[in-house]
Amino acid sequence: MKTVFRDAELFDLIPQRPPIVMVDLLQNVTDSGAETGLTIKEDNLFVHNGQMQEPGLIEHIAQSAAAFAGFKGYADGGQPRLGYIGEIKRLFVYARPCVGACLHTTLRVLGEAAGITLLAAEVKDGEALVAEGQMKIFLKED
């Protein structure tokens, strides 16, 4: 089974489409987490003065979670479901990464209940931690 998804291949997993696609890599998926990536391009919706702004980083985490959830659905032969952010908690933004940066994100599931998943995420640009925090995502029932 396919285990690495890049660029438009992710459209099988997430409901978001351009101009608001904020994840371009999903790999190393396990039951309890995954790794994702995003290369920041000049024309990214959330880039201003050559730097990715805070909502872009948060949306990258949210769509990483969407891709992770989508992968589970895909593995079961399902379509991606719309996922929404329910809550953001204890999220730090340390820097605004620049155009050209390759973000590398580690997701970890902390808990699940009643259709809501609590995840922890760490976003790195090379070795530098640019953002970290928790997010709750709920998936819309079909």
């Binding site: 809550e87 902390l110 808990g111 699940e112 209940a113 609590l118």
Partner: peptide, 10 residues
Amino acid sequence: SLSLVDMIAL
């Protein structure tokens, strides 16, 4: 419904 999952994780 949002904070229930906090308890599960805790």
